[in-house]
Design a protein around this nucleic acid. Structure first.
Lengths: 383, 383
DNA sequence: CCACTTAAGCAACGCTGTTGCCAAAGTGCA
DNA sequence: TGCACTTTGGCAACAGCGTTGCTTAAGTGG
């Protein structure tokens, strides 16, 4: 449909690889390294060393990227005994992406550059339960406003994030809690038609985790993003890429049992971490809520050998300290008693982006394919 | 080191892809499809459809595979209105692999063909705590015996599986429970030198899970393999490939908290699922043990959106029915209360292979790279 | 018997990264 | 100041990948 001449969607779809796929893979790889390097950029020899490609291949690839306007030269490096190298950097403004966070009561829309930095932000009230027309109209209005300011740089597409459950691959909503009429609604296609742009849909927690994964080295590193808002969910980044599970159902962190003879949860079972956590929040016992969260975080770290735990969501952002302390303590306790690996406890931090983490991450749904960041091992096929 | 002329380790190491990597990728892909197709094989047009490659490319690739002796023609298909297609199949006997299960009190060694089917099995008593020389000597004796019977087909290497924790990437053991002297021992390299073959080392649960992953369609499908023996561990297959975590620490299923005010576990914390489960086994309350296992399985399914749960390990194999029933019931209960996705409960089954599951899987550690089966997203890099 | 369909290989081709070579542009020692 | 050395990076020729175009083989069906 849309005029996206960047055919970088390497190794997508069918598993067989041909020359265009090879080219796209390497181009995305180089572009991803340039993005991670930031304004200082990377020299051709450095790119060659990191990719394993020959310097000559890197020269050809970067020449193509420069011709497309995606990369540019950025000064010279100090000499190391020979001709000084030319640094190459990403041209962030060459393309833009739009991220939409469709929350229950508010829409947040951002326009970001290629680096993923937000260059424009808009907010609007939203009543998710009010139905499709209201949502589509609001989204269209905000996206149009964001596009009006763009300085000619093409907008690649729109990433949309909303509370789950939903199916990322088809872009269809399932039973959104508190809004049963949305069940089965093809939100992705509806948005794409209304906005006239390609749309990618995902859960809010997944989008946020994908955005946070920008800080990781390529293809490595893992973390769990725990999101405590009106509910409790998680986004999992394993081996450098977002793990969605076959039905976009991964990250249902809130209904794990941590006290099997505990109080009954809304879901019908007992001792769910979400019930324990939210009950503590309701009685203003934030350390208690953090303890419950910490038990779940420890289970997560233990099961998936995760490097890092990041916290976010409205409830956490309103008063981060007790949550950070409580979860840190739970993981330190785990490190003391078990001491797997180095014995150093897994670090806990507040997720970058604050209240904009989900919207920023939603834009990343569009950008990630350009940089070869696999946003989802396990799409789960038929047959 | 060893003369492995099959350079199919495509896209290994450095992320940059070149023509040999492309070729290796496609060759492994085709070989993997042929393996999955079994004795009936697959025709060239079918391979083309499944890979997305052109029929001509498939012809070239399969011609190379036939020249190497890895594939062969296998009769004709019925005509569909034109020239009948020729079926191609894997030649299972073209190469062999050896799998070693180094358990605390017993060694199981298998020699398998390319299809992963065991063609020879040996067992020997083993005292893991007796130290390196005893272990290496026993392993060398059994491997030599297995190789003696091989009918000239090259043995690609040895996969070795033992109780964790250990580091798959370096092949070094950590603190094996009950045998502290093993801490830091480079078992993989010691075995490789003694046996004169390439060796891959992994946790027993990971090996078993990798072996079981053979039954999945390529690149899709996920399951958790729960192994209840002297301890309780798990192997995770996500998106069709084994997930080890950055430090080979994933799958530490036993020390997840499911009753945070429960009885104290050997690890120092409270309410670990392993403690609850083994205590129930000790008092011959298998349904109780199964219930504890079921709670953990439900947490796992919920968190990772897993397709299937497989059970194994000595304790389960000794009397499978109560465990299958208990875990099935726990997952059915979860499906009733939550009903994520289709609402159908996640199926539970006994892991294929029985007492040989780990040894068979260990051989798969050697075979998997030939077929492009990614045995471990997230090897975790430095920097 | 002949038109049609499907399978599979040969030959030419475009394009990938690679290799060999050389000019450019620095450093560092005499 | 000058010369040897190192490093960068482009040009040109090349090997090898899957692709395209065409031909032959081998069936089905009216």
């Amino acid at each position: 449909m849309s005029s996206n001449d960047l055919s970088f969607a390497a190794f997508t779809g069918s598993p067989g690889a041909n020359l265009p796929a090879l080219r796209g893979h390497n181009a995305a790889l180089v572009l991803g390294l340039l993005r991670a390097a930031g304004a200082e950029g990377l020299s051709r020899p450095e790119l060659a060393a990191r990719t394993g490609l020959t310097p000559q291949a890197v020269s050809k690839i970067t020449a193509r990227l420069r011709a497309e306007g995606l990369a540019a030269e950025a000064g010279r490096r100090a000499s190391t005994g020979g001709k000084p190298a030319t640094a190459l950097r990403l041209v962030p403004g060459a393309r833009h992406a739009i991220g939409l966070h469709l929350d229950r009561d508010e829409l947040t829309a951002v326009r970001t550059d290629l680096a993923g930095e937000a260059v424009a932000v808009r907010r609007a009230p939203l009543a998710f339960e009010a139905g499709a027309e209201h949502l589509l109209a609001t989204a269209a209005r905000e996206v149009t406003a964001l596009r009006a300011d763009a300085d000619g740089a093409p907008v690649l597409g729109v990433g949309a994030a909303c509370p789950g459950p939903l199916d990322h691959t088809t872009g269809v909503l399932h039973r959104v809690t508190g809004a049963p009429r949305w069940d089965g609604f093809p939100l992705r296609d509806a948005l794409a038609e209304r906005l006239g742009l390609p749309v990618v849909l995902d859960k809010d927690t997944n989008a946020a985790a994908l955005g946070l994964a920008r800080d990781l080295p390529r293809g490595a590193g893992s973390f769990g993003y725990l999101h405590l808002g009106t509910g409790l969910g998680a986004g999992l980044v394993l081996g450098g890429s977002l793990y969605r599970g076959p039905r976009t159902g991964a990250g249902e962190f809130g209904h794990q049992t941590v006290q099997w003879d505990g109080p009954r949860c809304g879901c019908g079972r007992r001792g769910c971490i979400e019930a324990l956590c939210l009950a503590a929040v309701a009685r203003d016992d934030l350390p208690g809520a953090a303890r419950a969260l910490g038990v779940g975080a420890a289970n997560l770290v233990e099961l998936l050998d995760i490097d890092r735990v990041l916290l976010g969501g409205r409830t956490v952002l309103a008063d981060p300290a007790p949550f950070l302390d409580g979860v840190t303590e739970a993981l330190a306790d785990r490190a003391r008693t078990r001491g797997t690996g180095t014995g150093a406890p897994v670090p806990v931090a507040l997720a970058r982006g604050g209240p904009r983490a989900v919207a920023d991450g939603a834009a990343e749904l569009v950008l990630a394919p350009l940089f070869g960041t696999r946003g989802g091992a396990g799409a789960g096929g038929a047959a």
